[in-house]
Amino acid sequence: MNNLSVNRDAKWHLNQPYNARHLVIAILAFILLAVTGSRMEVPRMVSETAQGLGYVVGLNEESAVATGVKRIAASIWPLRISEEIEVSRIEGFDPNKLPWLSHVEVIETRTPHLNTDTLQLEETIEHKEVLVKPLGYLMHVLLKMLETLEMALWGTLLAVVLSIPLACFAASNYAPNRFVYNLSRSTISLFRAIPELVSALFLVLAFGFGPIAGFLALGIHSAGFLGKFYAEDIENADRGPQEALQSIGAGQVKTLWYGVLPQVLPQYIAYTLYILDRNIRMATVIGIVGAGGIGLELKGRFDMFNFDHVGTILLIIFLTVIVLDQFSARLRSRLM
């Protein structure tokens, strides 16, 4: 009796993994990429990048991209660290009480102009007293960076505060009714759908330039993420402990607190740290629309072609992001 060979005369087929359908899909995908590629000027990108690379290795004489990069690089370096202010512009200036680490310099400026009587070029020499703070601009940027970090912190706090109740109502097993459930689900989706930069534009109109618009925009957008994550964790939490508390009549709130929260807390902290991380990156650029922080400074300097200032700002942003990356990685591994 051989049970294993019951299907002896069954016909076996093992086909190739591809067929005509796959070919059609591949051709369609290729056409789609060709169309959008030409709309995105991909060929021009390729040729100009190639020219730039050729210039670097000495194959071509000139390249528009390389020239642009060179010009910016030349104007970024040296970075702007110090700050100079005309003494005459400082109100109540007292030469005996200079701010820390600063000194007064006299700067000579020569302005050439045409003497209309002699028709000769002459120079007028002006002497200006300026207060030089050797680390002034760096300090200014660092303060702006601090403001940026504070914006990210308050944005994240706002997101946590908004998303906890939203998440409880948006978890199908704790929503009091269908209406509240759908309402909070759609609120969360809406929050997530509005990009920070867009809501910040409007919030700047409402609250004026400055960090308020910035952290509100960050908070609302990230509440959309946290709300979704938190709600899903509540729904997926082990039902056993919740049933145990429900069956003795502990009520919804206490069941959430004692049956769900301890289970999901590590995940919540991980999400919140991730959102904080993301908000810090986002806070550096949100100022571009006027919502405070280092982005506002960056935009102002960029528009005035002060690329040495821009260089300092970019360096500080870069360093901050690296340091925070290290820090949050360590914090996360400590908590897990």
Partner: peptide, 18 residues
């Protein structure tokens, strides 16, 4: 059906939550 990650003490006390 105890709450994991919560202490023994709080798990027992949670029996009196009502």
């Amino acid at each position: 059906n105890l709450t994991p990650r919560m202490s023994v003490a709080l798990n027992v006390l949670s029996g009196a939550l009502p």
